[in-house]
Nucleic acid binder design. Structure first.
Lengths: 117, 117
DNA sequence: TCGCCACATAGACGCCTGTCAATGCCGGAG
DNA sequence: CTCCGGCATTGACAGGCGTCTATGTGGCGA
């Protein structure tokens, strides 16, 4: 299978990650895509969301379980969840009237690789 | 050897990190401090700066070596460097007329720990 | 079909932030 | 002391983003 590219981690259709910062020069284009991914995590509300989901049973939770602890409006929570899904950090699954959000472990692994020196 | 606190990583005087997101509930206060740290990395220009420093000899570089590759003004570069220093990701050292910036490896380790599940 | 419930989307507003030009500071050479 | 080069700081502007209220959508039960 040869030529195992170390670049993975796409945002939507975007190729983004994931070699450590020190291995190769970082061109502007890739830097901007990586920044978009990191911006998704670099928000207090979204960090709390990720923490809540990470600690929920089966590592998944619906919106109604998340609005309470955060003290924020339901639309606001939905907005942040959309950002995390677009970044590939959460996966959405519709089940009955509820929408469940689950952690995407691989994407966190990619972030770790990026930040390794 | 007893009581190894897993919380480290301060921004300036701030205690911030570093247990994985899934180990304990993340209160608003710590979430905001963690977000400030991540925001420092979540910018394309600063990612390029970190990459340039990481690949420089001895993992350190002065401002004059950084403005060229980025195509940005010197004040802008200085601004971003200050952000990274305040976040604890770079260390500044004055040597003659130049100011050298060096990676702080421990801080990157902390970020990795945070993003581990 | 009708109505309800959980959730998503749209629009608006204020704050934060990345960028620049202009200026100030500081250390070394003469 | 004076000048100059490297770097930091200030002030201003535009764009991005987090939050809200109001409204739309979609599935389930009666």
């Amino acid at each position: 299978m040869a030529a195992v590219t170390q670049d993975r981690l796409d945002i939507g259709a975007e190729q983004v990650c994931c070699t450590p910062l020190s291995t190769a020069p970082l061109d502007r284009d890739r830097a901007e895509r990586l920044a978009r991914l990191l911006k998704a995590v670099a928000d207090p509300t979204r960090l709390q969301l990720l923490s809540l989901v990470a600690q929920a049973p089966e590592r998944e939770a619906c919106v109604c379980e998340l609005t309470g602890p955060l003290g924020l409006t339901q639309p606001t929570v939905s907005h942040h969840l959309k950002v995390l899904v677009d970044a590939g950090l959460l996966a959405r699954e519709r089940r009955g009237p509820w929408a469940f959000y689950r952690l995407v472990v691989d994407r966190f692994d990619d972030l770790q690789t990026l930040l390794s020196l």
